[in-house]
Write a protein that binds this DNA or RNA. Structure first.
Length: 580
RNA sequence: GCGACAUUAGAUCAAUUGGAUAGAUCGUUUGGCUACGAACCAAAAGGCUAGGGGUUCAAGUCCUCUAUGUCGCGCCA
């Protein structure tokens, strides 16, 4: 980082001395034959100051030529300035980060905390592929932020309240009406064992959901059941606790598999407890209005092209709704935690909901001025035909099925040299790498085409490719054995120079990933690094190299690449196997 | 109907936020294992950036119209 920073600063100082001001940001040269980096600001500055851009560029070049670190400074086209680093500078750089890896990592200095809301797995429903993105993106963002000196608080935010819960309870009642939970005259202790297993629940919810769509009477019963739960009926509450606990244990297994963890396992039910206090606040300050029998907050702002539907606090029957819970959750978090920003990770279909929610929160002065609210949406998930993704039988694919599919591909491809006792563990690590990398590679905001084949691809720009080559670098160190290396001497081939130039970018990539909450560039970075290294690897035989200085240099370079790969794979939530 | 977002190579995605010759991967074709692990490397073909009009030194990127698609639009979550 400091190399690029230094270049930016050098140019900035030159501009200042010439009487101009610009937030200088050099970029990697798009014509590598002309230089390592380019500065494009001269054209803009010239335009603003009505002077000739090439003349300004010339003046900058004259000053840059006087500095010791750069060479081959040239001006092209309307005023692009191309700058090349002297080899000695790059050699110093690689030696520095070899000694202190941390020097190449961006560190935020603002002492920030970011709250992450993963936008919810639902209790009593199996995790399906739709949950993959928020888990992977959320976990990777969390690790990215933590690596760069930013604190996080993560909450899984379970969907454990509302009608879906009512439906599950109702279906359990239909199946086992004799259970004491449904007996209003029951006065004893409720059983400590759950009457349902996770497998039962996976079956129960879809059935209940379908019945409610076809049978109005069933729906009405579900409404009553939901009301009982929400009004604290002791039997139903006791049953609900069993359902939640059973389901959470099951959900946790899948999240563990994905190397995803949370500081908080809260849910909508927790927010429900805050609702009376929130209502008191909102109503006490006259923030709500009655409209069509419901209690709402109007959230239109000047400049809206279309009137937004109001944010709903109470339904006309007096019940609360998703919107209420969302606001109560925010209310509760602001009361209990201190953070600078809150990131909601859900797919883009909830865009409107969050716009309404953020506006309502602001309008009601719930959120301090310096706290930001951000909806990190991602594209809706479609099948390869562009229609919403469905499995062959018309359902949603569960995360476990996807995993098994990829796992089998990986297992079958394992090398014979891997001991029997490690085969399953290794295949698991590779499968998760394949899934995560495929999921994190596309831009977060673009629409998402879900294709199981894409995830099972183990060649090319994939997780397994990066793992394979990372493991291969490691085996070089095992092969060379006791050889000591602590200095990179000279750049002996163009590809080495390219690798070092790429390593320089790491810090900027991390910074940009944080500011845009995007991970695809990190994926691209590690792929490019691996790929460059492979080119190097293919024509440089490190183990048998006879010139000791050259071998030492190559080992230092390999070490930095290896550590960088481990660092990034860790951010992405990907483990590295011993062998593969 | 209204609104938001999208449309880039046969397929899946990029493009440093307005910068030079639009890049990768898969697939296709070709070459490379008697040297550190071939889940690898090297090379080729493949593009009027959906279409029209504009803004400027410079447009895939900004404005405008058209077409197509996805999503959303008060008591579901």
């Amino acid at each position: 980082m400091y190399l690029i920073d230094k270049l930016n600063n050098d140019i900035k100082n030159i501009l200042n001395s010439l009487g101009y001001n610009d937030d200088v940001q050099v970029v990697k040269s798009s014509v590598p034959s002309l230089g390592d980096y380019q500065y494009n600001g001269a054209m803009k500055l010239a335009g603003m100051n009505h002077i000739n851009p090439r003349e300004l560029s010339e003046k900058i070049k004259v000053e840059l030529d006087k500095l010791p670190d750069y060479t081959n400074i040239n001006i092209a086209g309307p005023g692009f300035i191309n700058i090349t680093f002297k080899d000695e500078v790059l050699v110093d750089y690689i030696n520095n980060i070899f000694k202190d890896f941390d020097k190449n990592i961006y560190k935020d200095e603002n002492d920030q905390t970011i709250f992450l809301d993963y936008g919810g797995a639902n209790v009593a429903k199996e995790l399906h592929v739709g949950h993959l993105r928020s888990a992977n993106i959320g976990e990777a963002l969390k690790r990215l932020l933590n690596s760069c000196n930013i604190k996080t608080i993560s909450d899984v935010h379970l969907g454990d309240w509302g009608r879906p819960m009512g439906l599950v309870m109702l279906e359990i009642k239909k199946r086992m009406p004799e259970l004491p939970y449904f007996d209003e005259n029951f006065t004893g202790e409720y059983p400590t064992e759950s009457p349902v297993t996770a497998e039962d629940l996976a079956e129960i919810y879809p059935i209940a959901s379908n019945k409610s769509k076809e049978d109005p009477e069933y729906l009405e019963e579900a409404r009553e059941m939901t009301l009982k739960l929400q009004s604290g009926d002791p039997g139903i509450t006791a049953l609900w606790k069993h359902v939640r606990k059973t389901s959470v244990e099951d959900i946790k297994k899948t999240y563990d598999l994905l190397n995803t963890s949370f500081d908080l396992w809260e849910g909508e039910a927790d927010a429900d407890k805050e609702i009376p206090e929130l209502l008191e606040y909102l109503e006490g300050n006259n923030y709500t209005e009655i409209s069509e029998g419901a209690e709402v907050i109007f959230v239109n702002e000047p400049g809206d092209k279309k009137e937004l539907p109001p944010f709903m606090i109470k339904k006309s029957n007096g019940g609360v709704i998703y919107d209420t819970t969302e606001l109560a959750t925010l209310y509760s978090r602001l009361k209990r935690f201190k953070f600078n920003d809150i990131w909601y990770l859900t797919d883009s279909r909830q865009e409107l909901h969050f716009v309404q929610c953020f506006r309502a929160a602001k309008k009601c002065n719930l959120v301090p001025e310096d706290v930001k609210l951000t909806h990190l949406s991602f594209g809706t998930m479609n099948g390869s035909d562009g229609k919403p993704f469905k499995t062959r039988d018309g359902g949603v694919m569960s995360l476990n099925s996807l995993y098994n599919l990829v796992y089998n591909e990986c297992f079958n491809k394992l090398s014979d040299s891997i001991e029997d006792s490690k085969r399953e563990e290794t295949a698991k690590i590779i499968a998760i790498a394949a899934i995560k990398f495929a999921d994190l590679l596309p831009n977060r905001t673009s629409d998402y085409i879900f294709d199981p084949v894409k995830f099972s691809d183990l060649n090319g720009k994939t997780g397994p490719y990066i793992l394979y080559n990372t493991v291969r670098i490691k085996s070089i160190f095992e092969k060379v054995g006791e050889v000591e290396f602590d200095k990179y001497h000279t750049i002996s081939s163009p590809i080495e120079r390219e690798i070092i130039l790429h390593l320089i970018e790491l810090s900027a990539v991390l910074k940009k990933a944080i500011s845009g909450s995007i991970l695809n560039e990190i994926c691209e970075f590690v792929f490019k690094l691996t790929s460059l290294y492979n080119t190097f690897y293919a024509d440089h035989y490190i183990v048998s190299e006879e010139n000791k200085e050259t071998q030492e240099s190559w080992l230092v370079l390999s070490d930095v690449v290896y550590k960088t790969n481990l660092f990034i794979l860790n951010i992405l939530g990907i483990d590295v196997p011993e062998r593969m």
